[in-house]
Amino acid sequence: MSSSFDRYQKRKLITSYFSVVVSIALVLFLLGCLGLLVLNAKKVADHFREQVVVTIYLNDSAKQVEVDQLENTLAMAEYSKSTEYVSKEQAAELMKAETGEDFMDFVGYNPLQNSIDVYLKADYVTNETLDGITEELANKKFIEDITYDNDLVELMNNNVKKITFWVLLLSAIFTLIAVLLINSSIRLAVYSKRFIIKTMQMVGATKTFIRRPFVFKSVQLGVIGAIVALIGMGIVLYYLDLMFPELELIQNPILVGSLFVGIFLLGVLITWISTFIATQRFLNLKTDQLYY
Rank of each mutant, 00 (worst) to 15 (best):
L169A: 15
M200R: 10
T147R: 14
T126C: 08
T126G: 08
A178N: 06
I133V: 10
N159V: 00
E136P: 01
I186T: 06
N139I: 11
I182H: 03
S171D: 09
K198M: 09
I133T: 04
F165D: 05
F142A: 04
E135V: 01
Y148K: 04
V179Q: 06
Y148C: 00
I143Y: 05
M156K: 01
A205M: 10
I196Y: 06
S184R: 11
G204L: 03
M200P: 00
K162V: 10
T147D: 13
D131C: 00
R194H: 07
F142N: 06
T134F: 03
F195T: 00
E144A: 13
K161R: 13
L137V: 05
L176G: 07
M156V: 12
T147E: 13
D151P: 11
F195C: 05
T147G: 08
M202F: 08
K161E: 15
K162H: 09
R187D: 07
I177R: 02
S171M: 09
T134V: 10
S184L: 11
F174V: 05
Y148G: 01
G132E: 04
S185P: 02
T175P: 07
S192M: 03
I143K: 00
N150P: 01
N127D: 15
K161N: 14
V203S: 08
K193G: 01
G204W: 07
E144L: 12
L155C: 00
I173H: 04
M202T: 04
I133S: 04
T164N: 15
T147I: 11
K140R: 14
L181T: 09
V167G: 02
N183E: 05
T147Q: 13
L170F: 14
F195D: 02
T164A: 12
M156C: 07
E154H: 04
V190N: 02
A205Q: 02
D149H: 09
E144D: 14
N157M: 08
V203R: 07
T129E: 14
E136L: 04
L152K: 13
I197S: 00
R194V: 03
T164G: 06
F165Q: 10
I196Q: 13
L180V: 14
G204C: 06
Y148H: 02
I182L: 01
Y191E: 11
V167F: 06
L169T: 05
L176M: 13
E135N: 12
N158D: 14
I196V: 14
G204E: 04
K161F: 09
V153T: 07
E144N: 13
G204P: 11
L152R: 12
A138I: 14
K161G: 10
F142I: 10
K140A: 08
N183A: 12
R187L: 05
K162I: 12
G132W: 10
R187C: 06
D149I: 10
T147L: 10
I133N: 05
A178S: 15
M200A: 05
T175M: 11
N158H: 10
E144V: 04
A178T: 09
L137F: 10
L130T: 04
N127V: 15
I173K: 04
D149S: 09
L181H: 01
D151M: 07
V167S: 03
V179P: 09
L169F: 15
L180G: 02
W166I: 13
